[in-house]
């Protein structure tokens, strides 16, 4: 079955999801709040309505950083 390789960070790990799939559906499936991440493919950013082709690789990168002011 064709899959989308998804790289997750903090901690680094990889999951595979059946493709093709919309970005919004991938985030929902992984239970990730779209406000808290960027979805990156190569050096491009993907918006929520974009379809990710099967056999492609994306990174879901958290944008939230912690710490003291």
């Amino acid at each position: 079955m064709p899959t989308v390789k998804v790289r997750l960070r903090n901690p680094n790990r990889e999951v595979e999801i059946a493709g093709p799939r919309r970005v919004s559906a991938i985030l929902r499936e992984l239970d990730i709040n779209p406000e808290s991440v960027l979805v990156i493919c190569g050096d491009e950013l993907l918006t929520r309505d974009e379809e990710v082709a099967a056999d492609s690789e994306i990174e879901i990168r958290p944008v939230i950083s912690g710490g003291a002011p």
Partner: peptide, 13 residues
């Protein structure tokens, strides 16, 4: 927002 600062950084290499 921090999604914007992250996006700016990614898009500017």
């Amino acid at each position: 927002g921090e999604r914007e600062t992250a996006a700016y950084s990614v898009l500017n290499g």
